[in-house]
Design a protein around this nucleic acid. Structure first.
Lengths: 330, 330
DNA sequence: GATTTTTTGTTAAACGTTTACTTTATAAGT
DNA sequence: ACTTATAAAGTAAACGTTTAACAAAAAATC
């Protein structure tokens, strides 16, 4: 026979006190004399009692659960963020519910509906939507949200992201200063805030150096490795001696092509890529990289959503971190 | 002014029916005439009503949340499993709560306590505990649990794991057949079921070929890259011409050493490693690998926990998948 | 036309907590 | 000794659903 899980009334009965006292002992919401507290704690232990979280959540309206809505947790970048969010939240007594949207609008909407309907106390989201207007209907007014990595246009409120503009510009300017003039660019798809900045960085570096934009050196990739390979091929044919690749997955494909045709990075061509957290093997190569402080971003986002939950009056905060440019490999 | 979120009574009032009818319309738990259903649905839409999940969970005891307790979600292997579990669960209407234990016993216990106290309907766990007895106290009898990847000794119940014994043995036997006799082995730490099998595979292959075990060729690593590097160094000094590395992280370090001293894999030395999902770059190298069907394992575990929840009477199932040996690189 | 069955809805009692309000006992102030 | 303040704990009303038990109306059966 499997005995029923003990409830607060059982504890109260055993300890000879009221359920209110038991509750207060557990939550520390009221002073309870040393003596009775001891009794209650003993009963709790004896009955192996733990409160019914559902009942508590129902009553208090707090669930101590935060939703993380990510476009692709298979991507090392978002996985790293996931890990760090989980870690930070657990420090604050929160747990993490994960929704993987796979860059799909419907999945994102479903996730938002779900999380805001009473599952989570707050949400950290790297949205696939480019405009806030599209997601706003699914976020109840005042619901704690922190946008991470990407910032949908028109959004006002808490957000944490990394500005890559300066780092990209520095990297390209650096190439120019070293005498490279035919600098290719493999762009990533989308008009996400995170990718638009890289565009600006590349363009502005050239502009400031007085180098005209050459459309033949700008390739539009689709964020997949194969596409990086193909774009690199075209750029090599177009005679570039340096290239900036806006996405690490494409960089893998691009470097694969360079490898195939015997071009050595750092000698025959310069490569600047977003730094990835996946291919440690690149360490040895002379790839220049732009690193986003993913962990710190995640940590801040987690802290921010907790603060928002605990103090809804707080004004919205926009936190911007800076990417760093590494010239000497990864 | 921010108006209150609508509740079931508001919907009932607006539609001119009882709250019971509204509930039945939402859950399809009883036939409701076309006419009244329409009215209710209209009211739901008009009020933008969605049920309070906490209240529902509290009442029904179901939360539609599954816990995933993993030792290291920063590890690509467990991240991949996480991704696939999330995907499969969402198909069945469940969401995922993640607990990252970082191979820490206390964190695992805390996670189990939490998840079983009313957060989750079931758990999928890759436990750090080697003996089930150590974790059993934190799992209420009858609580739906599926052990994944690792099988604590003494556990009887649902589990999904990959047997690497045959593949490891095949790989080592293959090396022997090709004439390699000084085959090193870099072991991973711990007595986890998953690592013990690799041990057995290596030993048995040698035994069957009549090759005596040479303790000098067996290195005990600590599952970190640095350790792989050091062990490899010793093995090279000991004059191995082939090596089996029980852990992909250590393999990275080991190969790094081989690289450093100019040894080419496939020519100067043969390397068999657990196949990793991280270093795609290895593809080009002549590394032989042993692949675990992580995704399938995850999918099955997710299905299994759902089935267990929906049918608690089901007998426990132990699902064993087979790792595959790839001779021709990754 | 009376009885039974089916269809469609309603009523009200849970579920296990938290917490505002009330009570009792004890100490302090006059 | 009487009131007043303080300390410690108890009472009971929520919270928003689901669902068993019940009721009324309509349809079917005799």
């Amino acid at each position: 026979m499997q005995r029923m899980k003990a409830k607060i009334t059982d504890v109260a009965k055993m300890a000879g006190v009221s359920i209110a006292t038991v509750s207060h002992v557990m939550n520390g919401t009221r002073y309870v004399s040393e003596n009775t507290r001891k009794k209650v704690e003993k009963a709790i232990k004896a009955l192996d009692y733990s409160p019914n979280i559902s009942a508590r959540s129902f009553k208090t309206g707090r669930r101590n659960l935060i939703g993380y809505v990510a476009p692709d947790i298979g991507n090392r970048f978002f996985a790293l963020i996931l890990e760090e969010i989980e870690d930070t939240l657990s420090l604050h007594g929160y747990n993490l519910v994960v929704v993987n949207t796979r860059e799909d609008y419907d999945r994102e909407i479903a996730g938002l509906k779900l999380l805001t309907s009473g599952i989570a106390d707050g949400i950290i989201i790297a949205s696939t939507f480019q405009n806030y207007a599209e997601m706003q209907p699914y976020l109840p007014a005042g619901f704690p949200v922190v946008q991470i990595d990407r910032l949908p246009a028109g959004y006002v409120g808490d957000s944490v992201r990394v500005s890559t503009f300066a780092a990209v510009k520095a990297a390209v300017s650096d190439l120019i200063a070293e005498g490279y003039t035919r600098i290719g660019y493999i762009a990533s798809i989308g008009r996400l805030s995170s990718t638009v900045e890289r565009d600006r960085g590349y363009r502005q570096a050239l502009e400031e150096a007085g180098i005209p934009l050459d459309p033949d050196l700008i390739m539009q990739g689709d964020a997949r490795s194969r596409s990086g390979y193909d774009c690199m091929k075209k750029l090599v044919d177009a005679g570039v001696n340096a290239v900036f690749i806006s996405n690490s997955v494409m960089a893998s494909g691009a470097m694969s092509y360079l490898d195939n045709c015997g071009m050595q990075i750092g000698r025959d061509i310069q490569v600047v890529s977003m730094r990835d957290y996946e291919w440690h093997r690149f360490q040895k190569e002379a790839v220049r990289t732009i690193e986003q402080p993913a962990k710190e971003m995640a940590r801040l986002a987690a802290q921010q959503v907790v603060e928002r939950i605990e103090n809804p009056q707080l004004p919205g905060r926009e936190t911007i971190l800076r990417a760093t440019y590494h010239k000497d490999g990864m």
